[in-house]
Design a protein around this nucleic acid. Structure first.
Lengths: 342, 342
DNA sequence: TGCAATTTTGAAAACGATTTAATTTAAACT
DNA sequence: AGTTTAAATTAAATCGTTTTCAAAATTGCA
């Protein structure tokens, strides 16, 4: 059923009907009601493509899903959905395979230039992220989940990765640990750099020297956690504490410790970052896992909100949020055991 | 830059330009080349909304992301992306909160009727799924990931859940286990029913009786795994083997066993279903986990392909694929230990 | 009641492409 | 060369809305 036809049914002009449905003020309340009722009764819905053509809006927010970051991504997306529920805005996901950087940028460029979305969310940015430069150049509104280091002004939402890791490390130091290893995220992305900094700063503040042999980088998988944890734990002197980048990493760390006959919480203290997945709970691990915690889902929800603000005209420079991170202590952390450590 | 303007630059009519760009055969090769070159040089791209209005195609496949199924979902999505990379088709994700069934159906209905997508993928169907009936009624092409039980003909791709669980259970029986528990997926969805059937059939074939106290249903989280495993393992006589619905469930099961001082692979054999996540590997668990395995990502990739076939006119009834599931034995399964079992 | 001011409604022009049907140009035959 | 056939191009209609600007209906007030 088309607008014209529908309008004829009501003995009104398409103009009035259109206005009635989009809630313009210059249509009498009684007719608006009449139109609205008829719309449900006759099942009339404006053709979305026609609307989009004439309004110039697409009604969608774009987001890239990079291979290897799917776990966190799903939670984030879910949060976005929470906010967008009811708004007439879709989420357009572009899964992106592992290409080389140039190819990836081309793909991204095509995506943005095709104007299939009204705004973009960039995640896992790098310090000087080309994507940000491009979006800025093309005038496409965008929000960065995380931070970059760039001259262009941009809207962002990030968690305090630096502070979180600094606090976790400092806590371990307080417990008497001096050889503390860290399995961080992928090298090169800003949040990994921030975590590196937090870790180093904590050490330096206590007058300890940074030992590069105690830090590793990789994606958030149990595999990475297992491999690096093993290699750390086979060092001598053995580190007595370990900071892990994610829950998955921590699973690998637990396995590694177990495979070496070490008891987590006694022989080796572990703190991991927890993005609060509904399907994996730090409390249920054995032993329960001490974590720095910040909800990915909440970040997704808020990001959607911020994008909406951006779309309704709020300047990007006024959108900058840094979220604090909780430190939650459970059984996986304890004082350095006698004979270990220094 | 608009088509008209762009055409003027080339001293051609909009018609010819449009045809040249969309690769119609009735335009001379030399002019097509000229147009194509100019398009990149001048950065012309057809307005996506105009194209959509006139062609009636949206260029998107819709998929629902239900709260609580995010893990599997992300992998599936990623697989879809693999296939859709290069096609001019987007994935439109509608995260859906936990509403009551009626509200959820309304939402779904709105989504489908707004015609924002060319086709739909329905996941985690129920035996008589309203969504399938609706899509059929509205004439919207769709693919079901999983199966339903309904009169309407539909295209589907599913893995052999029944066979997988039957085989896993039979294997445990072969090892001498007689009290085998199962933590299945959410109640009511078809795949859980299929798994239930596989489990029962395996028991019945060996002349064993089905004991409802050994079967539980719930979503795929470590929490559910932990809770049900504990309650099973506290029964007396204690089950000596357990079939788990997912890797996350298995994590909970491992924790539960450990918390009771039981050794997985000796005191309790465990087989779980593995959807092949890049971030969680059955080999890295301690002990390594025996699994029934089928790649979610591969299913997503194939699903995208099947949807494309559907869109290009292949009848839904000709699209029906049942994928076999591998059984991979690792350390978490072993013969029933002396004194246990019967 | 009559006139101005204010609401409501409508006609027609966008929006920017694709596609049908018609026209021009080029190639292929006698 | 003259006609027929095929290839390449174009003018104009179309997709289904929103929105501008103008007209009609209603209200308020003297």
């Amino acid at each position: 059923m088309k607008l014209k036809e529908f309008a004829k049914h009501l003995d009104l002009s398409p103009t009035t009907v259109s206005r009635a449905l989009s809630g313009y003020p210059e249509v009498r309340e009684s007719t608006r009601k009449r139109v609205a009722d008829a719309a449900i009764r006759l099942g009339y819905r404006p053709n979305i493509n026609a609307v989009r053509l004439v309004t110039g809006r697409v009604g969608a927010i774009g987001i890239l899903m990079e291979r290897g970051r799917e776990v966190n991504f799903a939670e984030f997306l879910s949060g976005m959905g929470e906010r967008l529920d009811g708004e007439d805005i879709d989420i357009l996901v572009s899964p992106i395979a592992e290409h080389d950087a140039k190819e990836e940028m081309q793909l991204f460029s095509r995506l943005v230039e095709s104007r299939r979305v009204d705004a973009f969310i960039v995640n896992a940015p790098r310090p000087n992220d080309e994507r940000i430069a491009l979006l800025h150049k093309l005038g496409m509104p965008f929000l960065v989940h995380g931070r970059s280091e760039t001259d262009v002004p941009y809207a962002w939402l990030d968690i305090d990765n630096e502070g979180a890791v600094k606090r976790a490390t400092a806590y371990l130091l307080d417990l008497g640990h001096t050889r503390i290893a860290m399995i961080n995220g992928r090298p090169g992305v800003t949040f990994s750099l921030h975590r590196d900094k937090g870790y180093r700063d904590a050490l330096v503040e206590r007058g300890l020297q940074f030992d590069p042999r105690l830090v590793a980088h990789g994606s958030f998988t149990d595999e990475i956690g297992f491999r690096f944890a093993r290699s750390f734990l086979e060092q001598s002197p053995r580190p007595t504490a370990l900071v892990a980048g994610s829950m998955m990493t921590a699973l690998g760390v637990y396995s590694a410790a177990r495979s070496l006959g070490l008891v987590v919480g006694k022989d080796i203290s572990v703190i991991a970052h927890d993005d609060v997945f509904p399907y994996l709970n730090a409390d249920n691990m054995a032993p329960s896992l001490s974590t720095t915690r910040s909800s990915m889902r909440a970040a997704g929800k808020r990001s959607a909100e911020l994008v909406l603000q951006l779309l309704s005209g709020k300047p990007a420079t006024e959108i900058q949020e840094l979220w604090p991170v909780e430190l939650i202590l459970r059984e996986s952390t304890g004082p350095v055991s006698r004979g270990e450590g220094r």
